[in-house]
Computed example of a mutant assay.
Amino acid sequence: MKRILITGASSGIGLEAARLLACSGHPLTLLCRTPERGEQTRAHLLAGGATSSQVTCRVADLADLRSVQSACDQLLDRSEPLDALVLNAGQQRAGAAAPVWSPQGIEITFAVNQLAHQLIATRLLPLLRAGSQPRVVITASDVHNPATGGGRVGQSADLGDLSGLRAGAGFVRVDGHDRFDGDRAYKDSKLCNVLLGRELDRQLAGALPVIAWSPGLVIPRSPEGFFRHNRQSNPLGMALFAAVARDVLRVTESVPSAGRLLADLITDPGYAQAGFSYWSNRLVRPGVHRFSAAQTSAEGADMKKAGELWRLSEALIRRALASD
């Protein structure tokens, strides 16, 4: 039995993984965007067979660093060890021509996908160290890598010299350029996730598994969750893209399959090797995926950049919380 904390468990692969884990008897702490989402998620899991004592939902709006800090403080006050920290939440605003800003004035894709997760990892590390055979699982994506199919479409991920991040809150892109592209912002954030895992593993001196992974292209049929912003901004285009990708080209992975992979990464002894690893659920032919260990991009393996990204992000978080 593992005590597991998961972000992004209110929909999609996170919700499916939570359902599987609850059915296996694992106690779950789920960070949810609003009280209403928490209640809906808990009700869904209880209806699926989870017991009342198994599922705890706490409010943490990952777009708001103050909300994330508050949730972490509550968990630290309880001092209950964690056996798995699952940094799974994410958002994408493909097609957006202008940035949306977090309450702290940070481009929201970076705020949610990267900064919030670094804050959680930093604050809750004592609970993880106190856990039994603990591990960290980070949902990244192959789009971080320009050599992959998804990574080649449109602008490729590239953090440059991190000059945007060096400038502090208000940067449009991490590399310092001021031309926003929602798809590029997502790719950059996934590259940041890979580097987050690299640096976290370095700080832990390889003492426990730090797993970054790519679930493949997963398009839930639900209007909520990961693609909700894309559906809101371009509902017809998103519906057409989903239908072609899922039903014609057959390049997508299903929520149940990807959710099962995530649940396995969290609990399966086969993924218990200490140190950083990257796993990819890659399409090998239409309708068929293969899940295996893979190499990250060269930039995703740059330990100097991983350390600098962590340091600059930590400084940004500190300043944002101090001035908020």
Rank of each mutant, 00 (worst) to 15 (best):
L5I: 10
T7S: 08
G14V: 00
G14Y: 01
L15V: 04
L15D: 11
E16C: 14
A17Y: 00
A17G: 05
R19S: 13
S24C: 12
G25N: 09
R37L: 06
G48S: 13
G49C: 10
S52L: 14
Q54L: 02
A60M: 10
L65C: 13
A71Q: 07
D73E: 15
L76V: 01
S79I: 01
P81G: 11
V100L: 15
I108L: 13
A111T: 06
L115P: 01
H117N: 12
Q118E: 15
A121V: 06
R129Y: 04
A130G: 11
G131I: 09
S132E: 15
T139E: 04
S141F: 03
H144N: 14
G149I: 05
G154H: 13
G154T: 02
S163E: 08
G168M: 08
R173I: 01
Y186T: 12
Y186G: 11
K187T: 09
L191E: 00
R198Q: 15
E199M: 13
E199V: 08
W213E: 09
W213C: 12
G216Q: 00
R221Q: 13
Q232T: 06
S233T: 11
G237T: 01
A242P: 04
V244R: 02
A245D: 05
S257V: 06
R260C: 02
I266A: 02
F276D: 10
L283Y: 04
R285G: 06
V288M: 10
V288F: 04
D302V: 07
G307M: 09
L309A: 09
W310D: 11
E314I: 02
R319I: 06
S323D: 13
